[in-house]
Design a protein around this nucleic acid. Structure first.
Lengths: 245, 245
DNA sequence: ACAAAAGTGTTCCAGGTACACCCATGA
DNA sequence: TCATGGGTGTACCTGGAACACTTTTGT
């Protein structure tokens, strides 16, 4: 079902379809069992790891390009996506890495190939539901998979600092935007949200204070009790208001 | 003294020097007599107004490009400059306006000229000292001058929304960053800062609360009294700490 | 002496933190 | 019935808003 959207080898190498010297890079966050994770791609037949990214079609908004990359990698649409910074250092070119990639894919190229030039990259971060995503590698990659945020392999170029800036932005926005609504299941307990926030921020939060702050924010709606849990009082379940009101 | 940095007609039109399809646009804020102002350029022999902007040289950081634009328009270096958003709507092209500009400058061009294509623009906002800037038009402009923020003429393309986003970011950051240090003179009274903040935010602030908040922030240093003022108690003068500590 | 604006003290309230206590549930 | 984690009440602290009062200057 994704086939129609997939980029073929010929398409991927046809620089004339894209805005030259420009790319989008996506820091795609997921959350599972108290771990914050991101998606990382590994280029075929190399040891090069990178963020999922792509180029911007000549008749495509940059936001559309980011959504397209996201869809191609995860199969998900209508995702929370946020532009956070544009990386325009003059040394942002990757000739050696890209040569390796093209050689590994038996692609002919010369020194002036467009993929060897300098790129300016627009950084987006996305929040997705870990259980719903089905990570898929692109044409150049043989894997696209989840890594715990502190176990990310060494990334090519400045992608490590892109991740850091994304994480910084996420932390900065954590109690200002609907973070949980995108990273959690539809129904969750107060403890679930608190654990999520603690994982993102990397620090423990006061339980009762957090509880009240969340309730006062008006974002949550209490719906019932859960029982399957362990040997303790069954907590309420909550949903985010925007779901149905 | 600026001559060596000025862009000549030939240079300005030589697209091969720049990253294609990319520009920086600068919202340059100044403050004078309780008015927040920005610099706006007017293209020669047209009625087109735009933000000061420029292209990114092939061997230049985007930040450097923004600083260069700023220097060329104001004669100032080491300016507070902040990237705030990248505008990548697919309709960001300006063929009609640019044709007018080129015709007005007797420049020959055809339909495929690089300046007629789609541009993605990286938005920066700058804070400068109104009294120190010496606004200078560029090659294509016959003026570059200050406009009160609510009396800005109609700007070409989406420049109006760039201004709005810059202002929004400025308001958001007003008590988080060293706003005053960049927009005020070296020495100022508490009333001066309060009036600046009120102007930026577009609302009145509690005098005593503001006073205390500023003192508690630890950013200010009290240095002495001023007397020249009107018929009232002489207020203290302050400087920003970073100036000499 | 009076008006004007600046500096400072006091009070009040909201939000956050901390602690305590009770509640419900499964082993 | 006990351990465990969830829900809620109360006390405290801090920072901002609001108000009053005092201080200093020029007219």
């Amino acid at each position: 079902m994704l086939k129609s959207e997939e980029i073929s080898a010929a398409d991927a190498m046809d620089g004339s379809r894209f805005m030259p010297g420009l790319s989008v890079d996506c820091v795609i966050f997921g959350y599972h069992e108290r771990e914050l994770k991101i998606l990382v791609s590994k280029f075929k037949k190399t040891n090069l790891y990178s963020l999922p990214g792509g180029f911007i079609k000549k008749n495509e908004d940059t936001d559309e390009a980011a959504h397209r990359v996201l869809f191609e990698r995860t199969g998900l649409k209508d995702i929370f996506l946020n532009q956070f910074y544009t990386f325009g250092n003059k040394y942002r070119a990757n000739p050696n890495a890209m040569k390796q990639v093209m050689q590994a894919n038996d692609i002919e190229f010369d020194e002036s190939h467009w993929m060897l030039q300098r790129f300016i990259s627009i950084g987006y971060y996305a929040l997705i539901n870990y259980t719903r995503a089905e990570p898929k590698p692109d044409f150049f990659s043989d894997s696209c998979s989840w890594y715990d945020i502190d176990e990310v392999p060494e990334l090519m170029q400045d992608h490590q600092s892109i991740v850091e800036k994304a994480l910084e932005t996420l932390r900065y926005n954590v109690d200002r935007k609907f973070i949980g609504a995108n990273l959690l299941q539809d129904q969750f307990t107060m403890g679930d949200i608190q654990k999520l926030h603690e994982t993102i921020l990397g620090e423990e939060l006061n339980r009762t204070g957090f509880h009240r702050k969340m309730l006062n924010s008006g974002l949550l709606k209490r719906i019932g009790k859960k029982k399957t849990g362990g040997s303790h009082r069954a907590p309420y379940l909550y949903v985010f208001h925007s779901d149905d009101e």
